[in-house]
């Protein structure tokens, strides 16, 4: 899932200081699962903002609305009849959702309430770790299911570097060395042959905005 983290409250409050009527929009998908921007978090932030502005004697008329997915036109449509009542929109979705919202309502100022952080996994309640940088050409088959781009601090394709430190990364003893783990796993699987040859330089395809059209589909006219 996409993992996000709420921005500091003061930053959010400051972005909205010149507006009197704001709609806070949550997203029911990734950011809801990682406890950053779902319905519950929208409730909490909305109440906090309401309270803070009252105390500053600058009341804010703040509405709330959580859509199933802000990155999906079908779900954003539900906002069409509501948005007109507000001067500005606050979004608790990931960066993709925020942009899609801004694109749909180009006349409205849109503000991010969260920082989109990474594509990650759920290690425990409220505990998430990064696992994918969406580089666009997956090598996990060769590396024993451990991503060198994400998990190696230098993103090396031919590691480990000389800084590998008894299984840890040179940047931090608590950070495992990705290439140490790759070696260990492939060694146990008897597949070290996979990393004996030099991996050629990566064809970086994440340097410009990307589009995917699945086989059998085509680009539709935008509604």
């Amino acid at each position: 899932m996409i993992v996000a983290k709420r921005k500091p409250f003061e930053d959010i409050k400051n972005m909205l200081k010149d507006y009197k009527k704001v709609l806070n929009i949550g997203c029911g998908t990734c950011v809801a699962v990682c406890l950053a921007g779902g319905e519950k978090e929208v409730d909490v932030l909305t109440a906090e903002l309401d309270m803070a502005r009252k105390m500053e004697d600058n009341p804010l008329e703040i509405g709330k609305f959580t859509v199933e997915r802000q990155c999906d036109r079908e779900y954003l449509e539900a906002l069409d009849s509501v948005v007109g009542n507000y001067e500005a929109l606050l979004s608790m979705a990931c960066g993709a959702g925020i942009q899609f919202l801004a694109e749909r309502y180009p006349e409205k100022p849109v503000f991010p309430a969260v920082d989109t952080t990474f594509i990650g996994i759920n290690q425990g309640v409220g505990w998430y770790e990064e696992r994918c940088r969406s580089c666009g050409s997956c090598v996990l088959g060769m590396t024993g299911g451990i991503c060198p781009v994400t998990m190696c601090a230098k993103g090396l394709y031919n590691g480990p570097c000389g800084g590998t430190n008894k299984g840890s990364c040179e940047i931090n003893k608590d950070q495992p060395c990705a290439w140490f783990m790759i070696y260990e796993r492939l060694s146990k699987q008897g597949r070290l042959n996979l990393i004996m040859d030099v991996v050629p330089p990566q064809d970086w395809r994440n340097q410009t905005p990307r589009t995917v059209i699945q086989p059998g589909y085509k680009k539709n006219e935008v509604a």
């Binding site: 601090a153 230098k154 993103g155 090396l156 394709y157 031919n158 590691g159 570097c161 030099v198 991996v199 050629p200 330089p201 990566q202 970086w204």
Partner: peptide
């Protein structure tokens, strides 16, 4: 920003 466009082997 660490570049690491290519690694030492490459």
């Amino acid at each position: 920003m660490g570049v690491f466009d290519i690694d030492s082997m490459q």
